[in-house]
Nucleic acid binder design. Structure first.
Lengths: 207, 207
DNA sequence: AAAGAATGTGAGTATCCTGTTTATATTCTC
DNA sequence: GAGAATATAAACAGGATACTCACATTCTTT
């Protein structure tokens, strides 16, 4: 919910000190996310990002040592956001249906600003050597939350991890697909996605 | 199952007549699919494709007027394949479980050669002006098959179309994700995917 | 076997774009 | 008003790209 400001700050050429430069950096990251989402990795150039941010290319390189550091910052921000959504939905015990609803609502919210950012980040954008670790750790925590939820609503302890993987990728698939069609906020789609989660987690034939 | 040879042949500079050139064209399309899948749209260059096909760049341009025509041919071949898989799985009435199994097996088969081709084709690769129509028609037929299957196993007639969309994109999501991790042939994943399909289509709590 | 058609070659062209630097100008803090 | 922080955009060097063309090789046909 709250917007963090400081953060360990990825890899930066220098730290913004005044309010003006903080806003600049923020604008760059935001514009970067937009460009990445709309044009994909192939269309993601530093010049374009600077222009989209309403900032000169020089300013960009004042804070980000290179292109990869910028993607890294974008990735970090987005993943933190998604992670908090899942964490919240899976927090304290609640009925399965409510969990599913909150999860769907949160995930859709996280994708409605930059619809395809998530997939681009996962599929297209290359990883800095140092970011592989961060990336893997994100994936791990991501799945852990799903696994915890699955374990909570499902008696069987077997296959929990696989179920988490299947569930998460199914949800991502549906949301990604809806994003491409601008159908992210179609209510019947949301309902159906909730039903899918419920049906799968509650256990199919042997409910 | 059977490999078609002729086809209306997309947009070609000239038709291959002898066996040699037919093989060349085939090699180019095949290599194109490989490059596209492995390097994504950003890494998809005509020179690279020619090299991967073991053919000179000149030969490529002898048959394909430009880059887009080549993607078009790749797209066509792949989509035809996928379509036939679904058609077969959804053909003549069979128990839900069997349908799900055949579908999963077929889809995994269609993705195991060029794991990420499908997504790249859908997300990254741009569409020729003339291909939008073909693309849309593919999507339509694609969904029709899913809808037919859903209608068959579900009493409720409402939301059939939405369900088809949700189901197809969920399956795609799972397969795409598994492909990225080289887990396409993990048997427990296949089983779980089958279970997901069954659970969702058979109707959740009210089985 | 010869001629003409089909096929294959790959160096070369022209263009566009990219990431990044740098020298300079503006704005803030103290 | 001095010195630090911040912003600017022209320019560069390099690489990659899609695509052509003049020529060489192989097939088919008579």
């Amino acid at each position: 919910m709250s917007t963090r400001i400081a953060k360990p700050a990825a890899r930066m050429r220098k730290q913004p000190r005044q309010a003006r430069s903080i806003a600049t950096v923020e604008a760059i990251i935001e514009a970067g996310a937009r460009v990445l989402s709309e044009l994909g990795w192939a269309g993601f150039s530093t010049n374009k990002v600077a222009e989209a941010a309403g900032v000169s290319i020089g300013s960009l390189y004042q804070y980000f040592p290179d292109k990869l550091a910028l993607v890294e910052a974008i990735r970090r921000r987005h993943f933190d956001h998604v992670l908090s959504v899942i964490r919240e939905a899976a927090a304290d015990e609640k009925p399965l249906r409510q969990f599913a609803r909150e999860l769907v609502r949160g995930m859709i919210g996280a994708h409605s600003i930059h619809p395809t950012l998530h997939q681009v980040l996962l599929d297209e954008a290359p990883g800095d050597r140092g970011s592989r670790a961060a990336h893997a750790s994100f994936q791990t925590r991501y799945l852990e939350h799903y696994a915890a939820a699955v374990a909570q609503y499902r008696k069987r302890r077997k296959d929990t991890e696989t179920m988490a993987r299947v569930l998460s990728s199914a949800i991502e698939g549906v949301i990604h697909n809806a994003a491409r069609r601008n159908m992210l906020d179609a209510p019947e789609l949301q309902r159906q996605l909730v039903e899918l989660i419920e049906a799968y987690v509650s256990g199919g034939r042997a409910a």
